[in-house]
Write a protein that binds this DNA or RNA. Sequence first.
DNA 1: CTGTATCCGGAGCGATACTG
DNA 2: CAGTATCGCTCCGGATACAG
Lengths: 125, 125
Amino acid sequence: MEYAEFRNDEAPSIDDLPPCPVETTAQLIGSKWRLLILRDLMEGTKRFGELKKSVGSISQKVLTSNLRDMEKKGLVVRRVYPEVPPRVEYGLTDLGKSLTPIVDAMRAWGEGYLDRARKTSWGGF
Amino acid sequence: MEYAEFRNDEAPSIDDLPPCPVETTAQLIGSKWRLLILRDLMEGTKRFGELKKSVGSISQKVLTSNLRDMEKKGLVVRRVYPEVPPRVEYGLTDLGKSLTPIVDAMRAWGEGYLDRARKTSWGGF
DNA sequence: CTGTATCCGGAGCGATACTG
DNA sequence: CAGTATCGCTCCGGATACAG
């Protein structure tokens, strides 16, 4: 552990961000899982187990670590309800929500691609 | 080698594409390097060495393998000029160019993020 | 239910050497 | 110049077991 005492309170320093905005974005969401987590949280707040199911074949460990990262980056909020059994909900911060256009663009492109792939083997370009 | 005899002629089958369009897109470009290669080729055709410099710290091996993948996916064209010394140029296919909105969305978001990061440590949300 | 702690295999990647 | 071929290592991430 190493996250334990630092969660949302540590901001990424400008100094270790790449100068290129595309690269910056890629570092924040450029991973298969983070993108899918984002996609699912955009539907609204979800519990850990719910998220695990909806994301797909992700393991619990990997989901947890990705959520921790996204929390540190300020994309995700984690809310713990002191109940028993414990309940933990994850949601997007405003910053996280602001990524919507990117995910939407990816969805739009993917739909076009799948359509084409479905009706033909797309026969090359 | 294993690519050698299959370059542009093999299309991805619809059967091994995920049903979710976001996930499909993520599989095609969801890697740090592929995104940056895309970003740079969107400026126009480039030679191998040129691309290597502009992408940044990528090694030649990794650049090559990523270009091969993207070629197989139909995103990139490779043109060899039978000269000496050899010249090889890479460019985007129409499919590759159609990804522009996604990269643009990422750039736009990244710019906003960097602006905020520059003027403050954005102190949480 | 929501995690943390380990173990471990394999992919990813850098470094280097060699080729047409 | 633009690759291919290897070696070696790091670290991601899957499986499993355990805990609050």
